[in-house]
Amino acid sequence: MIVAKRKPFDEIMQLVKGHKKVLVVGCGTCVAVCLAGGEKEVAVLATELDMGRKLANNPVELGSITLERQCDREYLAQLDGMVKDYDALISMACGVGIQFLAERFPDKPVFPAVDTCGLAVNQDVGWYEERCRSCGRCVLGLTGGICPVTMCAKGLYNGPCGGTNKGSCEINADQPCAWFNIYERLKAQGRLDCLLKVQPPQEWKDTTPRTLIQPGYTKPEKAKT
């Protein structure tokens, strides 16, 4: 899933300080699961803002709502009737959701309340670890299911580098060396031949905004709003 981290309160306060009526919009999907921007976090932020602004003698009128998803037009439509009552929106969705919200209400300032941090697994409640940078050309088939782009601090395709340190990465002893692990896993699977060939330079796919249209679907003439 997509994981995100709540922004520091001061930063959010700064972003909205000139606005008197603010709607806090949460998202019920990824950011809710990772405890950054779901219904509960919306309530906490709204309460914090209410208190903070009162203490600053600059009270704010707040509304809050959590949509099923902010990256889907269908759910954003729920807001159509209510946005006019506010002069700014705070979104607690991932960067994708925030943008889609801003796109739908182009005349309203939209502020992010979270920092989107990546695509991560759920290790335990409240503990997430990044695993994929959505590079667009997956090499996991050659690397024993361990992503060198994400898990190697240098994103090497022909690792390990000279800094690999008894199974740890050179950056710190708590960070496993991705290439050490790739080696060990492929060795256990008898597939070390995967590593013998020099991997050519990556043809980066993330240098321009990407669009995905699945087979069997077409782009409508003009997206419905």
Partner: peptide, 8 residues
């Protein structure tokens, strides 16, 4: 920590 952020 939230209270501290808010100024309480």
């Amino acid at each position: 920590s939230l209270l501290q952020e808010v100024g309480l």
